[in-house]
Each structure stands twice: as structure tokens, then as C-alpha cells.
Simulated assay, not measured.
Amino acid sequence: MFQDRRDAGRQLVGQLGHYRNQPDVVVLALPRGGVPVAYEVAEALHAPLDVLIVRKIGMPGHEEFAIGAIASGGTRVMNTQVVEGYRVPEAAIEAIAEKEKRELERRERSYRNGRPPLALQGKTVLLVDDGLATGASMRAAVQAIRQFEPAKIVVAVPLASPDTCEEFRTGVDEVVCAVTPVPFYAVGQGYVDFSQTTDEEVHRLLRRAVGQKGAGT
């Protein structure tokens, strides 16, 4: 059990030590829950921290069940098997996607606060979230990152469904899932405190990370 997301990040670092002090490493967090985890990872590895905004597309009427996701840059990934199996209307998908796009753009403006994204071409990119359930958001993140031509993509999470963790091994260069409980019910099962991460906490941690890099720490 992790006490909270920052504790999870500190424990995840134990499996990422080979990336410490590597000048080509960039840590990208999936907000909001991934930011406290990624902050601890970036601080321990002495790597810059940035965010990649991803919004899941939920099943109409059951929004917590992801049938796809969108990411910064216009990337969209859909679980076609689920969409076709449940006969989800295209119009419903488009309506949800448009709503999530507006929220994505709001967060992009809010979290960056005028800062340009970090350069990713030729870099080793560590994509960090607080856990993997269906993996929809992370798949969208991976697809979005590929367009920037990184040298290596690493998916790193404290907790994951064993099946989802295994699925990613064929899609990226490295997968680090610190804990893969069986049976797996939800990401929150691995946390004592899984309360929602706020925009204020995201802003605070990103400002702190930028300040530390500027100070050379």
C-alpha cells in the first residue's frame, strides 16, 4: 500500500535509478493524479518535469469506464472493440470528445502558465501516472509523444492491472509497474489516501519543479 501519490512516486524511483543524472531524460506527468508521482520521480532523478494533458472519453452514462482518450496535439485513441461491442453512437462519442477537448485546452493553458513544452526529440521520455487500469489514457499519451520523435519511451507507474502492464510491453521501449496486484480492482486499491489531486497542487508542484531546475538543483 502507498500512503499517497507522493509516497508512490518515492517508491517508484527505486526501479528507475538507472535514469538518474542522465542529461537526455525528461519526465512527463499525466495530470492530475500523475503529477505528485512524477514530481518525486523527477526530483530523485534530477530530471526536468513537464505535463502531457490527457482526457479520457467515458462510456455515455458510465463516464468512469474509459472507451478512449484524447491527448495534447489532437491525438485520439479509441477502444474500437468496446465501442463496437456496446454499439456506442458516433454522435455520443463526438459530444463527449468535444467536451473533454475543451477541458484539455483549459488545463493546457492553466498548467503551463505561458511556459513552452519541453523539447522531446531525441530524449528518453518517462511517462508517469498514478496507475494503469484500462490504460486508455496512457495509450493516448504514448501515441501523442511519438510525433515528437523521442529516442525512447518509458511507461512508469506505481500500480497497474497485470494484464494492462503486460500489454504495454510490446508498445513502448520499457514498462515499469512497481506493483501489479492480483486480483486487480482499481488503481485506488493501492493507496491509503487516493483523494483527488487539485489544480492548486498541480500548479504548486510544477512551479517548484521549474524553480529547482532553474536553481540547478
Rank of each mutant, 00 (worst) to 15 (best):
M1P: 13
F2H: 01
R10I: 05
Y19N: 09
V26S: 05
V27H: 05
P31W: 13
R32C: 05
V35Q: 03
V41T: 03
P48G: 09
D50C: 07
R55D: 06
K56S: 06
G61V: 12
F65H: 10
A69F: 04
G74M: 02
T75V: 11
T80W: 04
V83H: 04
V83L: 15
V88F: 08
A91G: 02
A91H: 13
E94H: 13
A97M: 08
A97T: 14
E98I: 10
K101D: 12
E103K: 04
E103T: 11
G114T: 07
L127N: 01
D130V: 07
S137F: 01
M138V: 14
R139A: 08
V142T: 08
A144W: 01
A144E: 00
I145D: 01
Q147S: 14
K152C: 11
A156W: 00
A156V: 03
A156I: 02
A178L: 15
A178C: 07
T180Y: 01
P183A: 08
V187T: 06
Q189Y: 08
G190A: 05
D193P: 09
F194Y: 12
T198K: 04
T198Y: 00
D199T: 11
E200L: 12
E200H: 06
V202K: 06
V202T: 11
H203D: 14
R207T: 12
T217H: 07
